[in-house]
């Protein structure tokens, strides 16, 4: 299964990279999202996959449980990622509104004047 996951992670990263290199601002932000998914899945996989029970200690000592640490890390990362993506969406929306364009290449105003 890990092998399949490794491919999926590669796919997520590849799609993320590709989308981030697009000129459309929405695609670009979706790309960032994909990249985040890739990173989360990478942590999840790298720490070891087990089809085990959720890490709830009520089940007694005998049961095999999934590693809770990567779960906690990913949860933190997901939430942070959500905050950042939300901000990024608002920012992207404002920029495209101000620049009257959905084309990332049009955003060159701030770097004019160095001629």
């Amino acid at each position: 299964m890990e092998f399949g996951f490794a491919i999926a992670i590669g796919g997520l990263y590849a799609a993320g990279f590709y989308m981030m290199l697009r000129r459309n601002i929405v695609k670009f932000i979706l790309g960032l999202s994909l990249l985040g998914h890739g990173a989360n899945l990478l942590i999840f996989t790298a720490a070891g996959l087990t089809r085990a029970n959720a890490p709830l200690t009520a089940g007694g000592s005998g049961t095999v449980m999934a590693d809770p640490v990567p779960q906690a890390l990913i949860l933190t990362a997901i939430v942070i990622g959500f905050g950042v993506t939300a901000y990024m969406l608002v920012l992207g929306g404002r920029v495209s509104q101000l620049s009257q364009a959905d084309d990332v290449d049009a955003l060159r105003e701030s770097e004019r004047g160095a001629e």
Binding site: L91, G92, V95, L98, S99, L107, R108, E109, S110, E111
Partner: peptide, 8 residues
């Protein structure tokens, strides 16, 4: 506009 573009 400039500032937001830079920010992005």
């Amino acid at each position: 506009r400039k500032q937001l573009e830079g920010a992005l």
